[in-house]
Design a protein around this nucleic acid. Sequence first.
DNA 1: AAGAACCTCAACCGCGAGTTC
DNA 2: CGAACTCGCGGTTGAGGTTCT
Length: 484
Amino acid sequence: MRKGQSDLSLVEEVGRRGNMRESCHLKKGPWTSAEDAILVDYVKKHGEGNWNAVQKHSGLSRCGKSCRLRWANHLRPDLKKGMFTPEEERRIVELHAKLGNKWARMAAELPGRTDNEIKNFWNTRIKRLQRAGLPIYPPDVCLQVNLSQEESHNVASMPNQDSFGSNLVQSDAFEIPHVEFENLELNQQFLSYSPELLNIPPKTIGLSHGYGHVFPMACPPKHLQESVSNYMSLPNQMTDFACKENFDEPYKSSSPYDSDFSTNDQSSFGIPPGSDALLNSNFSPSEPLSGPMNLELPSYQYSDNQQDSWVNSSVPLPLVESVDTLIQSPPMKRAKSECFALQNSGLLEAVLYESKKLNSSKDDTRQQSSNLMLDDVADFHLKDCELEFEAHCDPNSPSALSAASVLSEHTPVSGSSLDDESQFVESILGGNGQNETPNQMAISGLDDFLGRGQFGHDNGCVNDKPIVTDVIAALLGEDTCCGY
DNA sequence: AAGAACCTCAACCGCGAGTTC
DNA sequence: CGAACTCGCGGTTGAGGTTCT
């Protein structure tokens, strides 16, 4: 059993260099209790660390890496076993909102839990929420993240996102205010919702979703329909705390189920504005929409639907979500485009809202207030935009990478998806599109929106107008820009 | 009852950062 | 100063179990 020292020290590098013949004598796969006992015994005697020496001294035919992992994830005495408590689940959500996929950092905040555990938790149960079109980040978490980042922003200018993230972790600013946890009247609603959702039998979720709300799949399996209808009531439970109690004034004024798009900021999508989560491709608010055709996704190709339930559209908006996605896509002008994208969750719905408004334009008072709120939302996001700007300059970032894949995924290939989207747009814009295709109407709505100076701030984002429209045109598969 | 589909989670892999020589 | 080594992290895989059809 005992391996030569030279072999031992080479194991990792050998593996790294692809010479598997050298490492094949090291055992892989599940650990046996005997191996566990050996490792535990070794660590008790020698302490943690120097993992490559474990094999040498203990006779384990496992590489140091494997030993470290086994110890860290299963044998450590301080490990907490069993399911996550609701409090832990909420903590994970909050930490993810702040940190993104920084599992190790999250694990450091959750005593007894491992990064692997948290990662698995996120990748499975949270993904389930997304599939269901339910939010991952409750609005209070979004707000909390934003506030803490704004505080940090006020304390020190952030040269780039990385340092910003580090500061968050290393400084007190990262500490999640206790008040948020103590605000259980508020959070309990989430908690009462969250664990249930997290334990939803996966196959009972037959929801697809749109941009604005959860809606049943076009043809949900019959056995799903009952659970769907039961499930549909859940978001309503969140309505009250979502905006009425825990949001600042602009957000208070409407519940997520008001028909006013103007409340749709990132928080409304369950995406904390400016959070690191936004930098992760798997949590871009603009990831490929899921739908009946896309319920099962490869690992990390999340549907990112979580925003939906915080949004209050009365119609599904998959097209807009696709557009939203695409706005991140253009490689050129990427920083600003993504800056745009980071805030665009609100913007694009606002665009549709504007389009819708053009068709109705009956309630001037409401328009004024919504325009006001749109500006608020825009300002709100533009702040985040500034914060995120530098971070998104890295072309290798996941969000950058996601764009191309998203583009390819959502560029209509077969007629069906395009048809669906067209019908969808038509449904949004009403029956007034006799002379324009729905796509054109959507573009014109966007044009109108941009032209009204909703984003005419001196931030450069307005320069993205051509990009946005081009991208939309590309998405729609029509050369709408020609007549533009 | 059997196969398909799906879910969970332990473990592996590649990479990068830090440290040592 | 640079190569070698070690460690830790995040992404991914696949085996095994469960549920559905």
